[in-house]
Nucleic acid binder design. Structure first.
Lengths: 218, 218
DNA sequence: TTCAAAAAGAACTAAAGTAGAACATTTATA
DNA sequence: TATAAATGTTCTACTTTAGTTCTTTTTGAA
């Protein structure tokens, strides 16, 4: 069994080699493991060599080879990973803000390029997400208000009843409830004052599915 | 296993062979790696040969063979890890979740003690915040739905028109629009089916002002 | 408090990288 | 095939980066 430091160092070496193709130097390892002196790294590596987790090419610099990874992680590492998981849940992610989208009459979408917004991480796990600013009132009965931030998951298909970003005739993007009826697509607003749009499937493309709403009263 | 220069050269050789079909000369390698002398290239190649990454056909010019290149992690895993790192950096704020609050009939508030929720940091700058889970439909016309997470900023007073957490008769907490009329406080729901409550100022205390909504469709 | 293990730091040794020139070999072609 | 041009090898000298070894300091557990 390795000590937490040994394990951490071993994983760092393995990771660095797999990511960059070359072996890290002692200086780099210092930073990664959180040790201030090279001699500490030296000692750790000697341990790893003795236990045959790594091999040193003699009289070479930056010449370590990882031979194996232990099956069991030290307790401290497990603890740490749990903490990271928790922190991840309590953290936010950056997703691009692509502009405004009509919840009423369709307006510009995919307008701004480099803006991003931060959203709680657990709203955007697994998948590719972006945000749109809601404009208009057509989805008001679904609790989606003018000015809300819609978190959209990129998708090309949708299930009936899902709220989607739909591109109509390759030019207007709109947020509506998706419903496939026979050979028609219905885009249903959530506001009595708006009409359902009934379109031929060839006219409509799904660009994403509504995954969340963030509103700020600031 | 490799030093950065060795790796760079190896990749250059490998790429050149794959692209042009023939091995680059030392002069070309010089330019690619950023070295002014051929002897440096020679030394690098000797190292690569020793580590069995390339093979030299003896007595041939431009006759190197790449035997192996370091194997990498799949790109999507690297992407995922980057995402996690970013997410950890953009970690959001923790605020206590104090329980459910009626947006209909008032229910328990200030119930749970140690639960917290995470919210995007910019929703909770300046001030003391807590969260409540919305229950009921009384604020539905304000886009506040059953199950939404309400981000509340602690406050003792409110302006007319603000949505507040109001404590009535020291026992029921409720989320309503605050309106002071003459010598009465009006707590206005946002739902035609609910009545405005008109109360004497001594009966009502402001406990906070609605600052944001987070909804997840997960 | 005491002791051992871990870490820090300094001083040192070794390897990697750089450069230029002279020399050797291979390749193209006159 | 003779020869020049292209290519590769070896050597020296030097700078920078990397790794080792030792002593001192800190830390943490008995």
């Amino acid at each position: 069994m390795l000590t937490p430091k040994q394990y951490k160092l071993l994983m760092f070496i393995d990771n660095t080699i797999k990511e960059t193709g070359c072996c890290p130097s002692f200086e780099e390892m210092k930073a990664a493991v959180g040790i201030k002196s090279k001699s500490g790294i030296h000692a750790l590596i000697e341990e790893l060599v003795e236990r045959e987790f790594v091999r040193k090419l003699p009289h070479k610099a930056r010449a370590l080879e990882v031979l194996k990874i232990p099956r069991f992680k030290p307790k401290d590492i497990i603890e740490e990973e749990k903490k990271i998981k928790l922190a991840l849940q309590n953290s936010s992610a950056q997703i691009p803000l692509y502009g405004k989208i009509a919840a009423g009459t369709p307006i510009e979408a995919i307008a701004y390029e480099n803006e991003t917004v931060s959203v709680p991480y657990d709203l955007v796990t697994r998948g590719d997400f972006y945000a749109l600013r809601i404009e208009g009132e057509s989805m008001i009965e679904a609790g989606i208000m003018d000015g809300d931030l819609a978190i959209i998951k990129r998708a090309e298909t949708a299930e009936n009843g899902q709220i989607v970003v739909a591109l109509v005739d390759d030019c207007e993007a709109t947020l509506k409830v998706w419903q496939k009826k026979d050979n028609e697509i219905w885009l249903k607003p959530c506001n009595k004052d708006y009409q359902i749009r009934k379109l031929h499937p060839s006219q409509v493309k799904v660009q994403g599915i509504l995954n969340g709403i963030i509103r700020s009263y600031n």
